[in-house]
Design a protein around this nucleic acid. Sequence first.
DNA 1: ATGAAAGCGCTAACAT
DNA 2: ATGTTAGCGCTTTCAT
Lengths: 349, 349
Amino acid sequence: MARRRQAVTIKHVAADAGVSLQTVSRVINKEPSVRPEMKQRVQRSIDKLGYVPSIAAQRMSGSRSYLILAVNDRERTIADWTARQGADWVDQMLLGGMLKCAEHGYRMLFELVDTHDDHVERELATAIAALQPDGLILTPPHSDNPRIVEFMAKQNIPFVRIGSHDTDCGIAISMDDEGSARLAARYLVDRGHSQIGFIAGSPEYQLSEWRVAGWRAVMAEAGFATEGLLAQGDFSYQSGLAAARQLLDRAERPTAIIASNDQMSLATLEVARERGLDIPGDLSIISFDNTPLVHFTQPPLTAIDQPIAETASRAVDLIIAAQKSAELPATPVVVSGSLVERGSVADLA
Amino acid sequence: MARRRQAVTIKHVAADAGVSLQTVSRVINKEPSVRPEMKQRVQRSIDKLGYVPSIAAQRMSGSRSYLILAVNDRERTIADWTARQGADWVDQMLLGGMLKCAEHGYRMLFELVDTHDDHVERELATAIAALQPDGLILTPPHSDNPRIVEFMAKQNIPFVRIGSHDTDCGIAISMDDEGSARLAARYLVDRGHSQIGFIAGSPEYQLSEWRVAGWRAVMAEAGFATEGLLAQGDFSYQSGLAAARQLLDRAERPTAIIASNDQMSLATLEVARERGLDIPGDLSIISFDNTPLVHFTQPPLTAIDQPIAETASRAVDLIIAAQKSAELPATPVVVSGSLVERGSVADLA
DNA sequence: ATGAAAGCGCTAACAT
DNA sequence: ATGTTAGCGCTTTCAT
């Protein structure tokens, strides 16, 4: 394959417009110190020749790369993709992130990094050195992985930690997991439920605790006990099966279960079917995540929607803002989830 | 934000190893003309300093960028992401593409381009000029969009056209749509069906015709008429509803329907429910695509699996190969789909 | 087999 | 407000 050089460079534009390279550069970068008439002339040449700046060259000369790197956990992502169960976290992240990037003339790149790898730092360093992104977006469980966070703190690159409350370094942004869990619990309490079970997610994710905390808080406020109503899961279908059985084996069977994600809700549905329990007649279910499968279950699941696209979009905004001012938001940014009503909750009242 | 320069450059490595820049470059690029002992010494310095070459600099100096750009249709992709119905084409493409790229030290970038935009060429030119990828992957309907293909033909960048049979330029790779449709039709014929309806996909996609052709061929071979058994859809749920009604309104009702994608199968399922038809007792259904939702329907859908991940993986291989030799595969590369048996087909035999 | 020099496209720093 | 110069990190010549 022949070597490819840039077809149209800043030189061509400069020659065509009869100005210096610098003036063209100033126009491209929207610097103020160019007379409107000059600017127009240059812009005409740019349009005429179809010139587009080379990111590589821009990056080389020390300016921005206009690249934002979103990093997800390799193991989990590949497992989701391979299972083809409709988990669409990545899609939603790209939806929010790419569109917002495009608005600002940035591009979003997507990388997989193993959170359990012995060389996480090395993996990240490689991606950063190779791509030279202007900012980085960390998703759970990376966002609170100490090795990753400490490494990033040294990099002098703005980075957002989605799903973290830690403000030591980086920019924390979370989806109000506690608030969402409260929302779900409150919704059930309002409908006359008092025996509300909760299936927790993997302890590797901090958000798992926050969700438990939200449920606990509402139960306490309402004066209901939580003893024996908390079951530990790890977000997998299997763990959901075990957790649901544990809860439904209680002498005093819960009338409702909140599960920390859709796979565990699916498992709860299956256990209910095993035992001949009608949903929502005998057992109400509220799910977390609102991934595509909630439409297809029998009945469709009432669920907490995680605003992933919106969060990714905000993350991009925060990075671009951080590039300019060194000022970071003092408190964690919060994007609230919402409850989507479907058919899996009974009104006991 | 302070300006960031590369932390460790080839200079540091050269100094540390006590050799010239050039020697380091040769080691990085695995050129043969370096003595093993030199090579070792340099490699040790690289590892010690944690050096990673800057893609920007490599690209600037005229070598490869190690970037492969996958381009999808913006409108359709965003519609799928927003609908959250579990369409996972993008995920499967990333799964196959990213992993294969990683194997070869490449990275996959992902871009959205509007196939109906008046300035498609401009959109593509921008992405190419900015990113300077070593190769490009076109997906349907871009793969057969004449403006896009003609533009790419001029670019001197190897590009793969997924879902195209056209060998004029670029590298065609397809998923054997005709063969897959034959597979589905044959499967039904073998189980005693003779009135087999077919719901076609959008004519904007060439693969729609090939699927129809496969069905027709099997029907002809079996000596069955196809008159009135073909309904036109456009891949949307709505169009599926209309198409299914048209087929099921026939005096001689089909005993089976093949739908060109999952959304239209879902619609067929719904129409069957409306009319009180049991699936598969009264009507068998075979779907195309095998996206996540096939697991969740009642009954789960027997479907043709489109090997998207495998195809993307092959596409990457083809691009990397094309970079070296100018030799392109003479005939279109074909990756075959398979039929996944679930519960939506009745055996009449 | 190794090294030195030139240049890729662009911008920061310094003129004017 | 505009132009000139130097240099980013790397690879391609072209020497040796």
